[in-house]
Design a protein around this nucleic acid. Structure first.
Length: 507
RNA sequence: GGCGCGUUGGUCAAGGGGUUAAGACGCCUCCCUUUCACGGAGGAAUCACGGGUUCGAAUCCCGUACGUGCUACCA
């Protein structure tokens, strides 16, 4: 049994969306689980859609997710190059081999001629408007042209493609790791172009040749590839590589949360959530933020993604990468698409924030604070703050909203929430509280609470009615952890200053 | 239109001939907390439809409907 070898083959045409990351993740899990290799290959044969910088971006996304493969396109590697544009010559050689064996042919039809064919078929009311066994003999290709003419055209480099000659009325069988045995008839598939006029291969030729040359044992891709799978299976056969054909798995689609259809970038914009792992800066279309920028932890992101289409059969929902490697199995991946639910995605992140240690959270949270103009000098105090507020943060960015008041005195005090029940007795209480606090020997949450309650009892006031005003004085509004915890972190001086400030506002 | 794939609460889903049809998200009620969360208890809500097979079907088979994908010199 040869070593397991999988590949992830994105095309550098835009941001890395949810489905792409999930395909990469499943590839990664499978490879790690079996002690195999995970190859990253770049499908950049469509030069019209190629976007500068997308390769590096894909690399960065996978790195952020923690699932970078062993061999990247930037290292030569054992089976490189990994950019298909750099393998151009290889594909031509194999395509010609197919022509020689009679499974493919040269086609010299111009785009207009193809268009004419389509128009003609439509006019005849034909259902299948495609270049196939029914009409290939009426077209301009090496099947009908005399040998000399074909050679002459090739010699003058007349624009041409190489098409596969799809057999008529044959059945192609293959096994899908998720769907089981699949049988498809060849008639439904047209004579796919294998090599384009610009010399680049199409996906159909490139996957087969690359998977063979790179010794791929398991090929996982989106469900949208299922209809053209017979072409690929046939190609493996025509090349005589049948025994090396990888095992297939066609992954379910990720669908729009509302309505129907595949999740797209537009849906994210429309519904207000990201669809890319990381911020994607399209040179033509501008910046689209990703899960990372929104404050997702990579652990939560891949956990959520993995569970969108797979579970281990237990009630467990929170998995670390390591646990996923241990428990993942392709035969428990669903065969149907799943609608993406952003609320659930946020729940995963919340769970991960709660479960993460302060040490894990610290660097990221620190960056957010620094981004907001607060530099962290006291590590211990910062750690205490994170511990105090992490359970109420759903996204990493919430740490700022939940914790900024520890560093910056609130500029807006919600006095409207205090005023209705405010009176002279309460005012007096806080004046005395300031004095009592300034006389305390030490400063802890327990002690400030004790002093607070004692003073309230002395003034015959209910502590409960005083705690809300106190909270608002310290944080500006009705939120945050326990008030005495807050004042203990804030320190005596700052606590008193904030009480005084609000008191002056209430006059 | 053709072909492929699919269909368990609003969403993610377990379950693969006998179950009171798990669990999670979201929603609602209550408790805890005189903030907000966290936590705890409870609630509403589901086997697309029609035929078979069977003593018995969410589960197996067929059909229909619906959804989705492909039907490019895009991947």
């Amino acid at each position: 049994m040869s070593k397991v070898r999988v590949r992830f083959a994105p095309s550098p045409t835009g941001g890395l969306h949810l489905g792409g990351v999930r395909t990469a993740l499943y590839n990664y899990l499978f490879a790690r689980q079996n002690g195999g290799d995970f190859v990253l290959r770049i499908e950049d044969t469509d030069q019209t859609r190629y976007v500068e910088g997308a390769e590096q971006y894909i690399h960065d996304c996978l790195q952020w997710c923690g699932i970078l493969p062993d061999e990247s396109p930037w290292k030569p590697g054992e089976y490189g190059p990994y950019r298909q544009s750099e393998r151009k010559e290889i594909y031509r050689k194999y395509a010609q081999q197919l022509v020689e064996s009679g499974h493919a042919y040269y086609a010299f039809d111009t785009p207009e001629e193809i268009e004419n064919l389509r128009e003609k078929l439509k006019a005849q009311g034909k259902y299948n408007v495609q270049y196939d066994y029914q009409n290939r003999l009426e077209m301009r290709n090496s099947l009908v042209l005399p040998k000399e003419e074909t050679e002459a055209l090739l010699k003058i480099n007349f624009p041409h493609v190489i098409r596969i000659k799809m057999p008529r009325n044959e059945y192609v069988h293959f096994k899908d790791m998720i769907r089981g045995d699949i049988e498809m008839q060849t008639d439904g598939v047209d004579d796919k172009v294998l090599l384009k006029a610009d010399g680049m291969p199409t996906y159909h030729l490139a996957v087969v040749v690359d998977d063979y040359l790179m010794k791929i044992t398991h090929a996982f891709r989106g469900e949208e590839w299922l209809p053209s799978a017979p072409v690929h299976v046939l190609l493996w056969k025509y090349f005589g590589w049948e025994k090396d054909m990888p095992q297939w798995a066609h992954l379910p689609l990720i669908l729009k949360p509302d309505g129907n259809g595949k999740l797209s970038k537009r849906d994210g914009e429309r519904l207000g959530f990201p669809v890319f792992a990381m911020e994607w800066n399209d040179p033509n279309k501008g910046v689209t933020p990703g899960f990372k920028e929104l404050g997702f932890m990579p652990e939560a992101f891949i956990n959520m993604l993995a569970l969108l289409g797979w579970n281990d059969g237990s009630e467990q929902e929170i998995f670390s990468l390591q646990e996923m490697i241990e428990k993942f199995s392709m035969d428990r991946v669903h065969s149907h698409g799943a609608k993406f639910d952003f609320e659930k995605a946020k729940w995963f992140n919340h769970e991960w924030i709660k479960k993460s240690t302060v040490e894990r959270l610290k660097p990221g949270v620190k960056k957010i604070f620094e981004h907001n103009g607060v530099s962290i000098n006291e590590e211990n105090k910062f750690a205490k703050i994170i511990e105090l507020i992490k359970e109420r943060c759903i996204l990493l960015n919430d740490f700022w909203q939940q914790g900024s008041f520890f560093f910056i005195a609130p500029t807006e005090i919600d006095t409207a929430a205090i005023l209705p029940k405010w009176n002279e007795n309460k005012n007096q209480f806080f004046v005395e509280l300031i004095r009592a606090y300034s006389l305390m020997n030490s400063w802890s949450a327990e002690e400030t609470e004790h002093t607070f309650k004692e003073l309230a009892a002395a003034g015959k006031l209910k502590p409960g009615e005083l705690m809300l005003p106190f909270r608002i004085m310290l944080v500006g509004g009705k939120f945050g952890p326990g008030v005495f915890e807050i004042s203990s972190v804030l320190g005596r001086e700052e606590t008193i200053k904030r009480i005084e400030h609000t008191l002056s506002l209430l006059k």
